[in-house]
Write a protein that binds this DNA or RNA. Structure first.
Length: 249
DNA sequence: CGCCAGGGCCTCA
DNA sequence: TGAGGCCATGGC
């Protein structure tokens, strides 16, 4: 049985369960928590916070981003108008832990200006394509960040492709390497129900399994929950068996 | 110590 | 349009 993109989702979900993305900062716990929001829309505040997180997590671990989000939240400045009018040096200090902090401070300024010029209640009604096009006009927001905002903040079905997704897809299915971003995105979307709940869980599951097992270097295939189906692992097994056979003869 | 992390922009062919 | 340099902190 050839495993498909759709079957990989069922497999991951069965093994790891729901992930509850995107995490929202909890003022009492002083950390980001995974609150189920499957059956309600995100609030305006949640939409902005998720968008800020999507920018801050560019090429950075979530742990470092969480601290930055906390600094903004605890200083009561996690809103478009507060960030827009904030002294840039102060903003840099608050988000320093997230890395590239000078660049990201500018990006958050641009993002805040965007939300001031485009009220969220209007953005909610836009089509995915409309929303994507205007988000991509923000300097500092590329395809992955735009898609993360559309999926996790606005709860609309678009599949997010990140480095984990590219790597896992390549290893698991093992076909050719050079997919364009939107090409790979379509590969996932055409095989799944166009449901933001599924897309959001699937992407989060890919990140989780990648962080646990599918490292860039020396992936832990032996322990990986996907190893019985993963082309990369099966080829390694074949190679090992072949070498063992050759060494004995 | 080196490598990597929930990328994107700019430049230069 | 594709490759390469740059941005920068923190965990392992």
């Amino acid at each position: 049985m050839r495993i498909t993109v759709g079957r990989l989702y069922r497999l991951l979900y069965t093994k790891l369960g729901p992930q509850g993305w995107w995490p929202i900062y909890d003022i009492d716990f002083k950390k980001c928590v995974y609150t189920p929001r499957k059956y309600r829309s995100n609030t305006d505040e949640e939409i902005f916070e998720i968008s800020v997180g999507a920018v801050l997590t560019q090429n950075t671990t979530w742990k470092n981003v969480e601290k930055a989000i906390g600094n903004l939240k605890l200083s009561h400045t996690l809103s478009p108008d507060e960030i827009f009018k904030m002294n840039i040096k102060k903003l840099e200090t608050l988000i320093r832990s997230s890395g590239y902090y000078r660049e990201k401070a500018k990006k958050l300024k641009n993002l805040s200006r965007f939300f001031l010029e485009n009220p969220i209640h209007k953005l909610r009604n836009k089509s995915i394509q409309e929303l994507r096009n205007i988000l991509l006009n923000i300097k500092g927001v590329g395809k992955e960040t735009a898609d993360s905002i559309i999926l996790y903040a606005f709860q609309k079905p678009i599949f997010v492709i990140d480095t984990y997704t590219k790597r896992l897809y390549l290893r698991f299915f093992g076909d050719h390497m050079d997919y364009e971003y939107d090409e790979l995105r379509n590969l996932f979307e055409k095989d799944l129900k166009h449901d933001w709940r599924i897309y959001s869980e699937y992407h989060a599951l890919i990140v989780e399994v990648s962080k646990r097992y599918c490292f860039k270097n020396n992936p832990r295939c032996i322990d990986c929950i996907l190893n019985n189906f993963c082309k990369y692992n099966l080829e390694i097994k074949l190679k090992d068996e072949r070498e063992l056979y050759l060494s004995k003869n």
